[in-house]
């Protein structure tokens, strides 16, 4: 039982870090629906690096760097070229899915390295995730940089007039966010489940995207949501732990996705919105063109 909860927290680590990356970007007004693609890139290239060099550190660094590069690409498409952010995000996801399938397939199989040591039975990245949550909450709500990011996401025209560079701030956020997504992908392929397989993320990136909407752009609600979804995900993988024999294991696999739909439904209701105060960044998804 304890093992189940530990695995759940490990699963939630991936959701948390990837979703924090998306949250930063969205706070600055940039929507990236291609989280899954960025994660696939970070996971696959991190995995290949670690496997060929035998170094976890290099694997993680490559995962983070690749995530940042893909974030930069999304920035170029959506900030400099002023394109449709959904088109660009979908492009990044399909590129990630297509290219990593090809690049990774010769490396199919287990990583074959000594596992990363745990702290109190938990993956050390769980603590990293909590640390990142606090840091990002602090930056966004307590620092001038956070104010800058939020103002760019709320009203870029006003921000620009008050002397903030919208483009620079947004680039900072999408690249930083991409790095976190790549990091989350690398945690998956190097620590959580160190086996490379075709399209192995199975929608975790999209759940992370849903989590950001669910979190009302608050890092702490996001952390709570991630732990909830991590537990559900783990439960769907091992239903026999709690409810042996109830429903086919295939039907259990649909549960996290069904619950995501339920959560989205709940948070779209008027009751939820007025209770928690929806703080959608006003300029989310809108390209900003300086006149």
């Amino acid at each position: 039982m304890a093992e189940f909860f530990i695995r759940s927290l490990d699963a939630s680590t991936i959701f948390t870090i990837a979703a924090l990356g998306e949250l930063i970007g969205q706070r600055s007004g940039i929507l990236n629906v291609g989280i899954e693609g960025v994660m696939l890139f970070g996971a696959t290239l991190g995995f290949i690096t670690a496997k060929t060099t035998g170094s976890y550190l290099l694997g993680f660094l490559v995962g983070i760097a690749v995530g940042g590069l893909i974030g930069l690409l999304h920035g170029i498409f959506s900030i400099t070229l002023g394109g449709d952010q959904v088109v660009s995000g979908m492009g990044i996801w399909i590129l990630g899915f297509g290219l990593t399938t090809y690049i990774g397939s010769p490396y199919t199989g287990p990583l074959g390295m000594e596992r990363i040591p745990t702290i109190l039975g938990l993956s050390p990245f769980f603590f990293v995730a909590i640390g990142l949550t606090v840091i990002i909450w602090f930056i966004l709500s307590r620092t001038s940089l956070g104010l800058r990011i939020r103002s760019v996401g709320e009203n870029p025209e006003v921000a620009e007039v008050s002397g903030i560079s919208v483009a620079k701030t947004r680039y900072l956020c999408v690249v930083g966010g991409g790095m976190l997504m790549g990091f989350a992908g690398a945690i998956y392929s190097l620590d959580y489940n160190p086996v490379w397989n075709y399209n192995f993320l199975l929608g975790r990136g999209f759940i992370a995207l849903a989590l950001v909407f669910f979190s009302m752009w608050n890092p702490f609600i996001l952390l709570g949501g991630s732990i909830l979804f991590g537990t559900l995900w783990q439960l769907s993988l091992n239903p026999q732990l709690f409810l042996p024999g109830l429903m086919s294991r295939y039907i259990w696999r649909t549960v996290p996705f069904a619950i995501t739909l339920g959560a989205l439904l709940l948070m779209s209701t008027k009751w939820f919105r007025t209770k928690w105060g929806a703080a959608t960044p006003e300029a989310l998804g809108q390209p900003y063109v300086k006149d």
């Binding site: 492009g91 899915f97 397939s105």
Partner: peptide, 22 residues
């Protein structure tokens, strides 16, 4: 070649198209 050439092509077509939206 290794598995997934058709998917890789899918990805490259998509991202090029995104750039050309401009």
């Amino acid at each position: 070649m290794s598995f997934g050439v058709d998917f890789a092509l899918l990805g490259v077509l998509m991202i090029t198209l995104v750039a050309f939206q401009f």
